[in-house]
Amino acid sequence: MWRYVGQRLGQSVILLVLVSMIGFGLLYLTPGGPMSQFTLTPGMSAETLAQIAHQMGLDRPIPVQYADWAWHLLRGDWGRSYRDQSPVLSVILSHLWATLELMVSSTLLAMIIGTWVGVLGAIRRYSVADYLATIGAMVALSVPTFWFGLVMIYVFSVWLAWLPSGNMYSNGASGLVDYIRHLILPCLVLTLVTVATWSRYMRASMLDVVSQDYIRTARAKGLRPRAVLVHHALRNALLPMITIAGLHVPTLLGGALVTETVFTWPGMGRLFLDSIGYRDYPVVMGLLMFSAILVLIGNLLADLLYVLADPRIRMA
């Protein structure tokens, strides 16, 4: 087991190095580059530009700049933001919680609804409700998240005026009730995509399980159908879902970014857009790295938890 963990960790670290090289290369080789903000400023002479480039260390070869960046990454500050010279890692961490709150709340909601819909679809296969759920999930995966956000704002904020249309707190307000009122809409929007995926896989997993012999045995023993369903079928059907949850991290992160931009939620997505706007390369690179790390952790946890949860898988 521990050898397997070590192996997977090693692979992830190697992949992460590759990820950082690709990310850095794309970012710094793309036309535009960190200097573009100054070249557009009127009255900048070539000497001043060269001086700025020198001060920022941008006149060095790309591999040297990469090594410098990697050194900062290992030292733990991830470089300095161009905007206010604060360490990139602390800038990211200060926006992390808002994003996590959104992701965790919507994932929990999606799991509850998705499990229910998936199980229902499996035990009443080919019923009208099942078909509606199937079609509904496909449509939910096709609706542009940001547009769904706009529609929700129109219905619940503009038309009904029940909920606020953005931000985390009202002006000058604080407290749990105000926070939850702001969380509801973005959380629902982010839930839509997750619930569609989750219910589909849950249904497939449940179908695999209910056709197994031990379920027939349990029913033949005369257990109540509900007991068979909850204690025998559902427990085992939820196992493969660990993997699904882990592999869903990139979609969820992307969805969170989109949702945050529509609802001006002060998380990593907002930070990302602001940093792009300011051409704040260190923060953009930091966010790319940070999201890649989150994705890799998701993959890793998916594999490891599955091994822990399923005794049938034994690692040599």
Binding site: I14, I22, T30, L257, I276, L288, S291
Partner: peptide
Amino acid sequence: RAVDAVLCFPSIFLLLTLAALV
């Protein structure tokens, strides 16, 4: 491995970065 590495970035992040710069 290069494919795996590119898949580590949520595609929207990558897309926005490139679109904003070009």
